[in-house]
């Protein structure tokens, strides 16, 4: 019994740090770089990804015994596309402002490598419960990194977080952080920092 709980918590924490989708596996880079101009779109994106990841993992796990090897990627993508359509329509109805900001990056969740990777590596091999835990862990790991990146970029580009000014009066905003340049360089430096921490530990 104890062994089993240990296994479950292992699956959960894997997504947070050890196998973090962005920092370790380098998956899902397009939305990571594109939507992190501020915290709010980053958070919306993260929550949408958690929803899609959870649903697709549940469905894939339930139908894992019916899958044919050569058709499995297609089945995954179709299941994912369905849930992404739901998420997209939901955002359009209840968060129209965020929906326009995120634009095509919500439908682009379909081709987000994280979701297909988890369907392939976890959900198609494990039972329902493990798949759900895995989806939540990976989703939270993804969202946290997205928010950190969005926070750094919003802070340096405008001096605000969630539209609340937090920097001192004479702070000069760095407009470049809003541009693609800021996204690439910030993520590059964060990855470097993570590498440094890992090598220090071991």
């Amino acid at each position: 019994m104890e062994n089993k709980t240990l296994g479950i918590s292992n699956v959960f924490t894997a997504g947070l740090w050890r196998e973090n989708p962005i920092l370790r596996l380098l998956l899902g880079m397009c939305p990571t770089l594109a939507v992190t101009t501020a915290v709010k779109p980053a958070l919306t994106m993260g929550l949408s990804v958690i929803f899609v990841l959870l649903c697709s993992n549940i469905v894939v796990s339930l139908m894992r015994k019916l899958l044919k090897p050569h058709l499995r990627i297609l089945m995954f993508t179709l299941a994912i596309a369905t849930f992404v359509t739901i998420a997209d329509l939901f955002l359009k109805a209840f968060q129209p402002e965020m929906s326009t900001v995120l634009g095509p990056y919500i439908p682009l969740i379909i081709v987000n490598c994280i979701i297909i990777c988890r369907a392939e590596a976890c959900a198609s091999k494990n039972g329902l419960f493990v798949s759900i835990i895995d989806a939540i862990g990976m989703g939270i790991g993804f969202t946290v990194v997205l928010c950190i990146l969005g926070g750094i970029r919003e802070l340096l580009a405008t001096g605000r977080i969630f539209d609340i000014p937090v920097m001192w009066q004479s702070f000069v905003p760095l407009a470049a952080m809003r541009m693609p340049v800021g996204a690439f360089i910030t993520l590059g430096l964060i990855l470097g920092l993570v590498n440094l921490i890992t090598t220090k530990k071991s």
């Binding site: 541009m179 693609p180 690439f184 360089i185 993520l187 590059g188 990855l191 470097g192 590498n195």
Partner: peptide, 23 residues
């Protein structure tokens, strides 16, 4: 390249500088 920046990090930073040029 500094050890901790080898691989993906330096590629991302290079990509950033490249987008700066394309801006």
């Amino acid at each position: 390249v500094p050890d901790s920046l080898k691989g993906a990090p330096i590629t991302l930073i290079t990509a950033g500088l490249l987008t700066l040029a394309f801006m």
